[in-house]
Amino acid sequence: MLRNIILKTLRDRRRSLLFWGLGFVVLAAIIIAFYPVIRDATFITEYLESFPEEFMALFAGEITDYASAEGFLNGELFFLMYPLLMLVFSIGFGSGAIAGEEERRTLDLLLSNPLNRWRLVMEKFAAMVICTLLLAIVFWATLAIGGAIADMGLNLLRLAAVCFSGFLLAIAYGTVALAVGCSRGKRGLSMGVSGALGVYGYMLNALAPLIDWLEPFQVASPFYYYIDANPLSNGLDPLHAAVLIGLTIFFLVIAIATFERRDVAV
């Protein structure tokens, strides 16, 4: 597990990854356990529909329909909870990737080896991609198994599409965090900036459909490209996925370019 920086980073994250994975399993299991109750109790659906449209849109989006399994999962998990947790994980990872080593002062020893800076950033990025993807797969697998037990009739490929879409979103934000960490060397700053961008992105995407003057700006939110095409019902939208991948590449280039050109703090 110490053959290279990717493996070393995975090794460092193994405990954190285990707890995150358990958390995702528990979350998925609890939500699915509620599904039969909510499906059969029409009064709950009616109760939820009695809320103002704005309120529901903010927390559950417009793709929610508690009568169907997909609508239920969209509202309960995929609109807010899943991307939120994925972002917390990836932003934490991205912020610490370079800036964490720098603040713990281990970067000098690392860079004294015959190792290009871009290579270091790429290996850290790869480790972030692997860990985040693992979480998405764990979440997908739990939902797939739970969905089968609860007889939700989910299309596993479409389920994979929305989990993967959330993974792409998380990587885009994680790469922003990586880039801020690479350019400024401050982990806290990186988490703050990326976290704030995450909240703005979410709010913009959730509120834009409800506010006339905001609506044209919805396409500026990464969250729009994650969920608006409703991948759980329609599969992955290649164009929307490409936007998220494009953002990731853009910020990865910025991360490398800034890190290559600056002094490393003592």
Partner: peptide
Amino acid sequence: PGELEVYDNLTGAELLEFLSHL
């Protein structure tokens, strides 16, 4: 490095193994 800081969650052997791979 002056005021050396290393990955202190590793043992000495593990740290040296990691650095030797690099």
